[in-house]
Design a binder for these strands. Sequence first.
DNA 1: TCGATCGATAACTCGTTGGTTATGGATTGA
DNA 2: TCAATCCATAACCAACGAGTTATCGATCGA
Lengths: 107, 107
Amino acid sequence: MSNAPDLLFRTLADPTRRAIFERLCRNGEQTVGALTAWAGVSQPAVSKHLGVLKLAGLVRDRHEGRQTHYSAQLRALTPLIDWTQQMAGFWESRFDDLEDLLKRMDQ
Amino acid sequence: MSNAPDLLFRTLADPTRRAIFERLCRNGEQTVGALTAWAGVSQPAVSKHLGVLKLAGLVRDRHEGRQTHYSAQLRALTPLIDWTQQMAGFWESRFDDLEDLLKRMDQ
DNA sequence: TCGATCGATAACTCGTTGGTTATGGATTGA
DNA sequence: TCAATCCATAACCAACGAGTTATCGATCGA
């Protein structure tokens, strides 16, 4: 039924991968090299995490010469918000602001 | 840093476990037997999932004779909501710094 | 052109975990 | 009291996944 958030939950479950996504949210676009220098794992590990994030739609990549720049795609979090809202029902009104924000970014 | 949502993401990443939690959200309190009859896995598997959910604070158990009733604890989802809002907040603050970034974004 | 750098992929290891069956303690009902 | 039911735990197994090193294609600088 709610199969939509499945990929998101699985993708964000790993701490290293989620940390990479968080950093992209905080600091904006980063190259693989920059992310590798910061994360505590090897470059192939970072590349693999970025691949998983991209499959989940959570990041975009932009090629520039021999480097690849990655940036967060916050819109991909929408199914997560929808799922939580569905579970919580009407209970949390804090979501309203976030919904508006995502709607503004949608175009 | 954002260690709070880690347990939640990991706990909700498994489809079977999340399905059990969803059912408890939708249909309210259920016994282990009722959940086992509905889920496609064995009774020990259900018990184990309920144990993990309980460790994450996502369910409560109530003992009544030889049966155990489980119910969802929606308040435990709060760190998940906070995390999502925080990610959106980081995103938004970057818009504040670069006022014309929105224009350059091809979305 | 050539060596160096960047990032993706391949191949492999190994710990984690979600599943199973077996079992035991506790409670109910006859 | 005693058999049956409910649920939790133990023990085990197989699959998955996150990490590693090795390597290769592509691109840049000199």
